[in-house]
Design a binder for these strands. Structure first.
Length: 221
DNA sequence: CCTGTGATCGTCT
DNA sequence: GACGATCACAGGG
């Protein structure tokens, strides 16, 4: 498990450093499975198809973006402390998850010092264990949908929670990061989908593994 | 290859 | 009441 000091650095440092690290996600506790199934079956069952079955998955982070604090106009923290952004102002290593466009969740990790409002967005992952997946994880919305990451994870710590689960049981909110294999080559570009951010829209704060086939389908280079 | 648009709802003004 | 840190699909060149 990566130490807390790993995250307590500026987001523009942590974001490229996260490439190649291993994210361990446990999908579908009994409780969560019942909840999501009842909600969805009442409307549409379209989403089950894009979501992975219950189990533990290990994936490799291959694309990230840094949101560097309250002065960064693309960063949610630039709007100040609100109920939604409160987690961003917390300790490094907290998980920040929010809903966008009414239908996609975004997975972030808080970085820097308390009060700075920094985070790194996880934009794409590639499967490690199992080595292939029946759904796509090459995009920030797609990976959260596949791994059933949503508001339940918001505010949780990447550090605690591992040893608290009952032996053998699945803990739905569990998210962990372990050391992995860094990319051989990293490409840096402006961030995606933040054209509203004025002077900050062209800041080179998106990072991806140049050799991964699982990078999101945006932009040229 | 590219640009445009609809879906859908929590959040903040 | 407006607007997204997205995605999938449609249509044109």
């Amino acid at each position: 498990m990566l130490p807390e000091a790993f995250y307590a650095r500026p987001a523009e440092v942590v974001a490229p450093a996260l490439l190649g690290q291993t994210l361990v996600v446990t999908v579908g506790s009994v409780q969560a499975q019942q909840d999501t199934n009842s909600e969805r079956s009442a409307r549409t069952h379209q989403r089950d198809k894009r979501q992975l079955p219950a189990g533990r998955y290990r994936v490799r982070i291959v694309e990230t973006e840094a949101y560097v604090g309250t002065h960064d106009l693309a960063c949610h923290a630039s709007k100040g402390r609100t109920p939604r952004t409160e987690v961003m102002f917390g300790a490094a290593g907290l998980v920040y998850v929010y809903l966008i466009y009414g239908m996609y969740h975004m997975l972030n990790i808080v970085t820097g010092q308390v009060g700075e409002g920094q985070a790194v967005l996880i934009r794409a992952v590639e499967p490690l264990e199992p080595p292939t997946l029946p759904v796509n994880t090459n995009g920030p919305g797609k990976l959260c949908r596949a791994l059933d990451i949503d508001k339940r994870h918001n505010g949780r710590s990447l550090h605690r929670s591992l040893h608290k689960s009952l032996r053998g049981s699945l803990q739905s909110e569990a998210l962990h990061l372990c050391a992995g294999t860094p990319p051989r080559r990293i490409i840096t570009t402006p961030r995606i989908g933040i054209d509203y951010a004025g002077d900050w829209k062209d800041a080179p704060l998106r990072f991806f593994d140049a050799d991964s086939a699982y990078v999101s389908k945006q932009r040229k280079q």
